[in-house]
Nucleic acid binder design. Sequence first.
DNA 1: AGCACA
Length: 247
Amino acid sequence: MEMQEANQGSEVSPNQTIYINNLNEKVKLDELKKSLNAVFSQFGKILEVLAFKTLKHKGQAWVVFESAESASTAIAKMNGFPFYDKPMRIQFAKTKSDVVAKADGTFVPREKRKRHEEKGGKKKKEQHHDSTQMGNAMNSAYPGVYGAAPPLSQVPYPGGVKPILPEAPAPPNNILFVQNLPHDTTPMTVQMLFYQYQGFKEVRMVEAKPGIAFVEFADEMQSTVAMQGLQGFKILQNPMLITYAKK
DNA sequence: AGCACA
């Protein structure tokens, strides 16, 4: 008799959605989704990122890609990668995501679970959607910013690229200055990109100054290698601009 | 550990 029971149980066919668990449950949902979105968008267009705070679904998330190829690349590249101090565990999702089914035409609305009765009376305005819909960002005139685009009159530099003030560039050193990040980029996202380079020490960001980050390396040789490797790398369509930090 | 679609 041969060994014919292949992988017991863990048989899930490749599809557009990845299921991630072992996520750090202390991270706020909103930040988590933004980080996931930014980190995984390098593998292809993302249709939706879903995560829930209920007990049964804490520490887990679904990232729906436009293509199954993106999903498998994401698994190959990111499974086990440290994310908020815990290695992500990534698989294909077991069932088709609603966004996908809707695009398919195969979507059948499931019956509403009557478990949670809504609080009557107060209808709160759904001003902020909880689920990160990438369609919005992609169609936005303001890449990298979720939700509705601000009126054009308020957008000083469509495309999000800030002008670089003409000043003497800082001489090479061990700290990098990263600009043109989408405004809601999290330190974790930046860390994930620089982590792979030898000598990486830390990322520093200031909430009051969105769009920039400082990335410290042990020495200037190492920061230079990272700079060359990641110069222009796109996070949500924004190419990173990396220079040496002024000290 | 836990596979949903606020």
